[in-house]
Design a protein around this nucleic acid. Structure first.
Length: 480
DNA sequence: TGAAATGTTGGGGCG
DNA sequence: ACGCCCCAACATTTC
């Protein structure tokens, strides 16, 4: 038994030491700090839906490395990260009982499952659960319409955020932390978060540096070198024009507030504003999930419950594997598989293709993204899938059906993105690479492409798929 | 943060 | 010189 009871710092989607209000508050108690992370396979760990949802494979890979980095930073501050696996609420309560701690500090998450866990802890804890804001710019309840309601349209929401004048100043990382007497901890390596058989993570290793230091490095590189060309480059998937900060943000290795303030220290201009607006899209999705716990499973527009979705297992599988025969779609899905990440423009294209051309329910796409994205985030993932499907808040109009060939020609005009991820088409010229089925036989021959053999024929005729989607939407619209 | 169909306009070829 | 047609370019509307 230690002589002094600790303040428990419960890390969740905020795996950093800088700008960490819960860490700051725990230290301010003057008591020794006991940093804890709980892996909750049953109740969703970091994020959970109305029920519970465990992290996907790519997220688990990231989590492993991020925790290793956090453990290292805590060690250099002189304290140990305690790892426990089990039911979140029960585990935290156990630790509190074991150590005699009365105060638990943690970030406030927007996911309904996490809020449920918080309620359970707060109710049973012999003391206080301090829920601090560590993942969003503002508390969801502090951004409300004049009438006190929740925003359902992005632009007024963003304007309301901007009118708040930005988030509070960020907090520095502590140089040292007076750690509590360590208690028993799992070994991170025993959690088996990394894929073993087969090891599919080599592309992830080559692309990402999880952890607070990697996040800061990526942020500074982007703000110093990427911001200037952001407006044009961010829509071209062959360029590294986006910030690629999404997984760092999801795991809270860098806070949205830090990025906001870092961006504001750079030169003012349209590129900076555009980047801030992207941060606010993330904030908007978090706000939506806070106000609509059913967001991950249920269309916000109820008439979409009547949509005559197709049950198409082979189609879903072809989409997942990047074998649809539509080059830009396949390129995106293969990039996702290799990097655990996909360019934002292409996410919209592949999502539109699944939902509209294939008429497969958006929840199936959302689930695949959840499992394969390193930035899988319940609020952003569900919010954006609903946005594309047309059934969400401030959603794309239902008739906005991307033509993947035109999107490819517009945003990958030289074909380099497809060429990189779909190498069997790499010898096709920019004119034909986005629609090989329209290429003359001799062009295909010279490029070594045999449709149906070296590369699939399209699994759906684009014009027919579009017509089918419009017809289906017309039915539910009339019924609404 | 669409695409396709339809409508309008204006320049140029041509009888 | 004129009317007619064609059609590209752009605008509007429809899905």
């Amino acid at each position: 038994m230690t002589s002094e009871t600790p303040a428990i710092l419960w890390f969740r989607d905020d795996l950093r030491l800088s700008d960490h209000s819960a860490l700051h508050a725990a230290m301010e108690t003057g008591r020794p700090v006991l940093p804890v992370f709980v892996l909750d396979d049953g109740s969703g760990g970091s994020q959970a839906s109305g029920g519970f949802r465990a992290s996907g494979g790519a997220s688990r890979w990231w989590l492993h490395h991020s925790l290793a980095a956090l453990r290292q930073s805590l060690a250099s501050c002189g304290t140990r990260l305690i790892l426990r696996r089990g039911d979140s609420a029960g585990t935290i309560l156990d630790i509190a009982r074991q150590t005699g701690a009365t105060d638990v500090f943690t970030g406030g998450l927007v996911a309904p499952g996490a809020r449920q866990v918080d309620r359970a802890v707060a109710a049973a804890l012999d003391g206080t659960l301090h829920r601090m804001r560590t993942t969003t710019l503002f508390h969801p309840d502090s951004v409300r319409t004049k009438a006190g309601g929740a925003y359902s349209v992005y632009t007024p929401f963003a304007n309301a955020c901007l009118a708040l004048g930005g988030p509070k100043p960020t907090l520095p990382a502590p140089k040292s932390i007076r750690g509590a007497e360590p208690i028993e901890s799992d070994r991170l390596e025993d959690w088996n978060l990394l894929p073993a058989k087969p090891d599919w993570a080599s592309g992830l290793r080559d692309t990402w540096t999880p952890g607070e230091a990697g996040a800061m490095e990526r942020a500074e590189a982007f703000l110093d070198h990427g911001l200037a060309g952001y407006a044009a480059a961010r829509d071209r998937p062959a360029n590294d024009g986006t910030s690629m900060l999404s997984p760092h943000l999801h795991f809270g290795e860098i806070s949205a507030s830090q990025l906001w303030h870092m961006a504001h220290r750079r030169q003012a201009g349209p590129a900076r504003d555009m980047f801030i607006r992207e941060l606010l899209w993330r904030e908007f999705c978090a706000n939506l999930l806070w106000h609509h716990p059913e967001l991950p499973d249920t269309p916000l527009k109820p008439e979409f419950g009547k949509m005559p979705w197709r049950d198409d297992k082979p189609g879903l599988k072809a989409w997942q594997q990047g074998q649809t025969g539509v080059p830009i779609v396949d390129a995106g899905m293969r990039q996702l598989w290799h990097l655990g990440w996909m360019h934002n423009r292409v996410r919209m294209i592949v999502a539109s293709f699944l939902i509209k051309h294939l008429m497969i329910r958006w929840q199936d796409g959302e689930a695949w993204f959840w499992d394969t994205l390193v930035d899988a985030d319940l609020a952003s993932n569900a919010g954006n899938w609903q946005w594309v499907a047309g059934c969400g808040a401030d959603a794309a109009p239902y008739f906005r059906i991307f033509n993947p060939v035109l999107q490819g020609r517009k945003f990958d005009s030289d074909g380099d993105y497809v060429r990189h991820w779909v190498p069997e088409l790499s010898r096709l010229d920019p004119r034909h690479i986005h629609a090989p089925w329209d290429a003359p036989a001799d062009v295909l021959n010279r490029a070594g492409v045999v449709l149906g053999k070296t590369y699939p024929k399209p699994i759906v005729d684009l014009a027919a798929g579009r017509a089918r989607a419009l017809a289906a939407y017309a039915v539910i619209r009339d019924r609404a």
